[in-house]
Each structure stands twice: as C-alpha cells, then as structure tokens.
C-alpha cells in the first residue's frame, strides 16, 4: 500500500519547470534529487537516458534541451529523481539556459549535481565543473566519451583529476552504458554524504579575497535560512560582481514567508541543524 502511493508520486513530470516541482513529496529517506549539468554535446542527454531509461530521443544538437526533462531510477533501494538541465558552457546566467541551470543548482535542493564532461576537450568542460563546485560541494564529475578519448589517443589521469578537483570523477561511455553502475554508486555515496568531498576552491585576486572574507561571514546567517545548500562564498562572489538576477532570486526567497510544510525536507533539516530551529 505504502509503496503504491510512493510510486504514483514519482511519475516523471515532463514539461514542468524543475522548481515548480517541490522535492520532498516523498519521504526524504527514499528519494534523492540529482541535477545533471554539462556543456552541450557531451552526451548529457545520453547519460540521462541511460540512467533513467526514460528513453526520450537525444539529438546531437546545440540548445536541444531547452525544456527540462525529468526521470527517475532506483539504485540499491533508493529512488533518485534526475533533472536534465540545459547544456551550458558556464553558469554566468547570460542566457535563459544558463540562468535555468544556475537557478536549479542553487535552489533545486539537489542532493548531488553530476557534471557531464566531454573527456576529449576537458579544459573547456572544467570551467563549468569549477563553477558548479563553487556553488555546491556535492559534485560528481562524469568523464564521458571515454571511447573517443582512446580513439584520439589522449590519456586522462582519472585519479589525478579527482584529487586535483577534490570531488569524485567517474569515467563513462554512456552510449554503451559503460561506467554507469559506478556513476550510480558514486552519486549514491555523494548524495547520502557517505563520500565527503573537498572541492577545489578557486582563489581570486587579493582584493576580491579580502572582500569575500568580509562579506561571507555576514551572509552565512541569511543564506542558512533561505538557501542552505548554496555556498555563501559563491554568493559573496556574485554580490561583488553585481549579478542582479541572483540578488533578485535570493531576495525573493528572503521576502517570501515559506510555510514550514512546503519547504524541501532536506533543506528544512539542515537549517535546523545549523540554526537550532526545530524543523
């Protein structure tokens, strides 16, 4: 009976924008939200399909995923809700896709964010990885297209990359399904917190760092209340570079009185942990 109800709540929600779908409908202990980010043409949609088996058609096509797709899969008894974000090169919110991807990573209350990368041109793809890592520590790097890496006679030091970045790196060939089990295991470990990440922190010029050191502690209290999953350091950086969209998005959340029962459960919990407010 209980499992029936649980299933009916998790029908993929097609065309709805991800933040209209409140996570936490189901008991938080059985459902995790996984955001799938990545540059265009890294096989992100193929990874999505391979994970969820939703089997929507994927195209080799820039800007294809304007509409966000959602799917679910189960792994070791846990249900994972996967949100396929639009392919973007950065999170600077200069286009609707970038804004959507950034907002979901910030406010979607994802338990883990997978950044799918094209291993054949890692340098460009790492920009997005580093930007995502600035927002959230719960990052898994999916090193996709490993078959083309060997075809192009490139070698990638996966362990070295992982220790440089401080987050797990999983090599995959999503087209053949190679490495997906390891990816699911790693997602499970990062989402549950069993695998603690120590994401590389990009340090900026001394002037910027001095400002961040000043602003970040003062932000922490507010951020813990409205968006506990976002790194205050990243918000401080965005405040310094004067990102109006983000300020607006956060202000809106500050102003809105969230009724307790609709707040994402994981968010409510970590707020409770940090501020001592009973959830």
């Amino acid at each position: 009976m209980g499992s029936m109800r649980h299933l009916s709540l998790h029908v993929p929600r097609g065309l709805r924008m991800p933040w209209h779908v409140r996570p936490g409908h189901a008991p938080a202990s059985t459902c995790c939200t996984v955001a799938l980010a990545g540059n265009p043409n890294t096989g992100k949609s193929t990874v999505f399909n391979a994970l969820t088996g939703l089997g929507q058609h994927t195209g080799n096509w820039p800007g294809k995923t304007v509409v966000v797709a959602e799917g679910i899969y189960t792994h070791c008894g846990m249900t994972y809700r996967v949100v396929d974000l639009p392919g973007t090169y950065s999170l600077l919110a200069t286009s609707p896709e970038e804004e959507l991807a950034r907002d979901f990573i910030c406010f979607g209350a994802a338990d883990a964010t997978v950044v799918v990368t094209d291993a054949t041109c890692l340098e460009r793809n790492l920009n997005l990885v580093l930007q995502v890592m600035e927002i959230t520590p719960r990052v898994v790097v999916c090193l996709n297209l490993m078959d083309e890496v060997s075809r192009k006679r490139i070698s990638v030091d996966v362990d070295g990359l992982s220790s440089e970045l401080g987050v797990p790196v999983v090599p995959t060939v999503a087209r053949t399904g190679h490495g997906l089990r390891a990816l699911m295991d790693t997602i499970a470990n990062v989402a549950s917190g069993r695998l603690a990440t120590r994401p590389l922190r990009v340090t900026y010029s001394p002037e910027v760092e001095a400002l961040v050191a000043d602003i970040e502690p003062r932000l922490s209290a507010v951020m813990a209340e409205v968006a506990p999953t976002i790194s205050p350091r990243w918000v401080a950086l965005r405040l310094i570079d004067g990102d109006p969209g983000l300020v607006e998005a956060i202000s809106e959340r500050v102003n809105r009185q969230w009724p307790q029962d609709t707040r994402p459960r994981s968010a409510a919990r970590s707020v409770a942990a940090r501020s001592g407010i009973p959830a």
Binding site: L122, E123, L126, K152, R153, I154, S155, V156, D157, G160, L161, E164, L165
Partner: peptide, 8 residues
C-alpha cells in the same frame, strides 16, 4: 589542472 592530468 588539465596540464597535470591530460596527455595527448
């Protein structure tokens, strides 16, 4: 990072 981890 790529300099350290990627060989062509």
């Amino acid at each position: 990072i790529c300099q350290k981890t990627v060989r062509r």
